[in-house]
Design a binder for these strands. Structure first.
Lengths: 249, 249
DNA sequence: TCGATTTTGATTATTTTTGAACAAATCAGC
DNA sequence: GCTGATTTGTTCAAAAATAATCAAAATCGA
C-alpha cells in the first residue's frame, strides 16, 4: 500500500462521503495515523482537499454543473416545447446569440446538427455544443460561478463587437411595459444581445409572462417575438404591441 | 528476455491489474530488481506508466469528461513535478495567465484552493477550476474545437486589455534563440500573454528544451524563468541569457 | 574472430517512506 | 476564562526502495 494507492483511496472516499477521518482511514487502510496525516497534508497542499482537525473535506462540496442541469430540467417538457419551436427558426448559415438561462440551454439539443455559428456567454451551452456541427464563439470576461456564465463590462463590450441575425434569450419577467430581470448583470448582458441582433426571440414559459420584477431594462418593442406556452388571457397584454407571439402546445 | 518483451509484459500486467510491483515482476520474469527498476523508469519517462515507490501504476485511471486529460497524461509525472514547482510561485492575491497547453493544464490541480484570479483561453482549465477558490476570467473569441481553446484576433485583443503579474505558459520549443511554436495561432496568443504579464514562466519538459521548430515568435529575454526537468547539458545554451532556470527533480 | 558497445547484475551509499515518542497547538466541555 | 483530551508538528530511528558505481555478460559490427 503505497502513497499513490492511499491517495486514490482517500480521494475516492472523499468523493463518496464528502469527508474523511484520520482514525477511520488508518484502520481501513491498515496504516498508522501519522502516515495518514502526512498524506492528508500533502493532498491539502496540492489543493485536492480541505484539511480539518481529525480529517479532511472535499474542496467543492456542491457539484454545480449538476445543479444547472437539474434546474434546467425543472419544467423540462414545457421548456423543450418552446425550444423545439425556437429551433424551427434557426437555419444553416445563421449566426445567433444564446444567453445563459436555463431555458435557452435546452435549445442546444435541437441545434446540434445545424451548420450555424453560436455566440454565447454560457459555459453549459459551450460544453453541450463543443463537439458538433455548430461553430462556437465564446464571450470573454469575468466568469460567474453561480450562473456558470461570463458577465460584466468586458463581456458587454465583447458582445458589442459582433452583429447577428437572431438572438435567443430568456428573461425573469416580461409584460407590455418591457423586460425585467432579477439582477443588473443579467439585464446588461441581455440588453447587449438585443442591441446587437437584428431580431430577438424571447423564450418564456407561462410563469414569466405578465410578471414585472425588480429591474426593467428594455422596452417591449425592442423584442421581435416571444415563444411561450402562456394562454391567451396572459398574452392579452401584448395586443397593443408589435410583438410576434409564437404559441406552443 | 529482452527489454521489448519485458516492456510488453509489464504493460500487459498494468492493463489487467492497474499496478505492478518491482519485486513481483523480478520474480515472475526471473530478472533482477534493478533491471525491472530501469525498465519502469524508462516506461515512466515515455509516459506509459506512473512510477511509484516499489512499482508503478496506470496513468490516470479516472476518465474525465474532457478527453483532453488523456493527452495531458502523457509524461504526466514530469509535468506534475514541473507544475508543483510552478504552484510554489503562485500566492493568494495573484492574478495570473494560463495558456491552453497540456502541461499548463496540469497546474490546475495544485492551485485549486489558492485565492487567485486566473485568466485563460483554455476550456479544460476553466472546467477544472470552475468550482473552487480560484476566480476565473475567460478570454473571448472563436472557439477552436481541436485545441479546446479560444484563439484569434478578438482573443488577442481581449488579452491586451488585461495586465497580470505572472503568466504560466507552454511552448513547442525553446532555446537561446527564442521561443518556437508549431502554429501561428498558438504563437500569437502566447506572445499576447507574454506582453501583458510582468513576469513569464515557461513550463517545459526536457523534450522542448533546445528544440527550434517551425515558427520563432519571441526572444528568450522576453521570458523570466523556465521550469524544466532538462539536465544541465541541455540548459547550457541559456548560460549567456538572463533566463532564470528552475530545475525539478 | 576481435574489440566496442550495450545490457545486466552485484555492491554500496543515498534517499524515501514509515512509525514511535514527545512537546506544542487545538478543541470541547464546563 | 480554565482543564483535560485530542490532534498535530517535530524529531529521530528503522526499514524499504532507489541511485550510483563498477564489473560481468551479452550483443553487435566489422
Amino acid at each position: 500500500m503505497n502513497f499513490q494507492k492511499r491517495k486514490q483511496n482517500i480521494l475516492d472516499k472523499l468523493n463518496v462521503t464528502g469527508e474523511v477521518d484520520v482514525k477511520e482511514l488508518a484502520a481501513e487502510l491498515g496504516i498508522s495515523e501519522i502516515t495518514i496525516r502526512r498524506d492528508l497534508n500533502q493532498l491539502a497542499n496540492d489543493g485536492l482537499l480541505y484539511r480539518t482537525h481529525g480529517g479532511g473535506m472535499k474542496v467543492d462540496p456542491l457539484a454545480k454543473p449538476i445543479d444547472f442541469v437539474n434546474k434546467s430540467a425543472q419544467n423540462a417538457e414545457v421548456k423543450d416545447l418552446i425550444c423545439r419551436k425556437a429551433a424551427e427558426h434557426i437555419h444553416d448559415g445563421d449566426i445567433i446569440f444564446m444567453d445563459c438561462g436555463s431555458t435557452v440551454f435546452r435549445l442546444c439539443q435541437f441545434i446540434k446538427n445545424k451548420k450555424i455559428k453560436v455566440i454565447t456567454n454560457s459555459l453549459p451551452v459551450i460544453y453541450e455544443l463543443q463537439n458538433c456541427a455548430v461553430s462556437l464563439n465564446i464571450i470573454g470576461g469575468e466568469y460567474n460561478a453561480e450562473r456558470q456564465a461570463v458577465h460584466g463590462k468586458i463581456a458587454n463590450e465583447h458582445i458589442a463587437r459582433y452583429r447577428t441575425g437572431k438572438a435567443f434569450l430568456g428573461v425573469d419577467g416580461i409584460s407590455q411595459n418591457g423586460l425585467f430581470a432579477n439582477s443588473e448583470l443579467e439585464a446588461e448582458i441581455t440588453l447587449a444581445y438585443i442591441n446587437q441582433s437584428a431580431y430577438t426571440y424571447m423564450l418564456c414559459d407561462a410563469g414569466k409572462v405578465g410578471k414585472e420584477t425588480y429591474l426593467k431594462f428594455a422596452d417591449i418593442n425592442q423584442v421581435g417575438a416571444i415563444i411561450t406556452n402562456a394562454d391567451d388571457s396572459k398574452l392579452d397584454c401584448f395586443k397593443d404591441t408589435a410583438l410576434a407571439i409564437l404559441k406552443v402546445k
